[in-house]
Design a protein around this nucleic acid. Structure first.
Lengths: 233, 233
DNA sequence: ACATTGCATTTTGTATTCAAAATTCAATAT
DNA sequence: ATATTGAATTTTGAATACAAAATGCAATGT
């Protein structure tokens, strides 16, 4: 394990980053209790900055605190995931609106170039490349909208969605064929400065993901087969 | 100053509440540096839970951390306030939508009763009573929508708006005469389970507040008179 | 009078310590 | 065999300790 001591300005921040990454890449598993002493030793720091980082993550809902029992990696129900996507829907809708209002011509060209490598292919096979472009698409729009709060909030929810994608990979990662058209239309609306349309289309884009989640609930309740780390409300 | 030692489960949480309150009621002023040792002593705790609480508040953007320099009460520009209200607009819009989908008849009656004391008066003079009802209105709707994340996020922004109201009281507190009709229409939409309409009306309600803020910017830039704790981007 | 330097003081970031609470686990009872 | 009790051990919550950084301030120089 990487020793973090002394090489960064603030240990809190760096421990926070590392632990967050560990949750994302499932080194720390949902439901698992955090072994404070051990993890702190592995990271080469004392419990103080680790606890500080865990409390940050509690605020982001990636960590759950049970008083006097410890810190646990949080575990999301599908219903909670729907709630999170609904929030992303309205917040990214707002970001798209704001982006349409303040985007520069240069940013427009960059945005329009994002998916050009995938355009025109009947079937996209470079999933990881597309997925990277997709991520860039969302962060660029938020960046252009540039409202500190909005960026912070969306970052939080982005990570959560990502964590979830790893959990139920067959369910949430949508194939480029299904989403590239959405992306192009949103970019077009933003670049023609049509803020109403940009918001509407971005929201519609998220509604798609939400519908997929809702279908999952229906299926599972029918088959009554509950997956590993997902339990319902 | 109240001594907090021993009377609560977790000192962090309680220190957090108290410090938040101190920022809200302006015992701690924007821009001011937090005297850790002194404040901890005043509260009857050590620096450990105080620092923990301050880091929570940093996440909520009520506190700003300058590494190696200390914690400072944050200071909002009008542009930032506009950003915050835009977020509240979409999130409370979502809350209204969800509330319309899952409200019970009992909750409807409670909601409808909220403003009955003010109804029919040409001019409402009981400002603090109305302001309390207004707060209840928003928290009830969020509560009915009942999505943990949504509630958490809105709570954060609610506090910030409140802090701001204290700062520039002549600007943001709107007179009941201007808002009671909005409230009634929103309640009507929610109680008739019209979720689209509920969202639309709630968003329009917030747009009003945002417009007021934007007018303030225009006025100030014209008069070039900058107020005490407000500085612009 | 004002700027600069260097020492003394204060404050911060982090580790360590320690009492109280929770957990484990073996011994005993049912 | 299973349930219950109660030490021994581990873990948590919070205070304290301490080195490193920042700040204040007085002495000196311009």
């Amino acid at each position: 394990m990487k020793n973090l001591g002394a090489q960064y300005e603030n240990l809190d921040q760096k421990v926070y980053q590392v632990v967050k990454q560990m949750i994302e890449d499932r080194t720390l598993l949902p439901g698992q209790k955090i072994p404070q002493e051990k993890l702190a030793k592995d990271l080469g720091v004392s419990r103080t900055p680790l606890i500080s980082a865990l409390k940050f993550l509690e605020h982001e809902k990636l960590i759950e605190v049970k008083p006097r029992r410890g810190f646990f990696v949080r575990l999301f129900t599908i219903n909670e995931m729907i709630g999170i996507f609904e929030i992303r829907e309205v917040l990214e809708g707002l970001a798209a609106r704001r982006a349409a209002q303040c985007i520069t011509d240069k940013e427009c060209r960059e945005l329009e170039g994002l998916f050009k490598n995938f355009k025109g292919y009947a079937n996209i096979t470079d999933m990881s490349g597309y997925s990277k472009a997709d991520r860039k698409f969302h962060t660029m729009i938020t960046g252009i909208a540039s409202r500190e709060f909005l960026a912070t909030m969306l970052q939080t929810f982005d990570i959560i969605s990502l964590a979830y994608q790893n959990v139920s990979s067959e369910g949430l990662i949508r194939h480029p064929n299904d989403t590239i058209e959405d992306h192009e239309k949103i970019i077009e609306a933003i670049c023609s400065r049509d803020s109403d349309q940009a918001e509407t289309l971005m929201r519609a884009h998220f509604k798609g993901a939400i519908d997929i989640l809702k279908e999952q609930i229906d299926e599972e309740s029918k088959q009554n087969h509950s997956k590993e780390v997902i339990n319902h409300d």
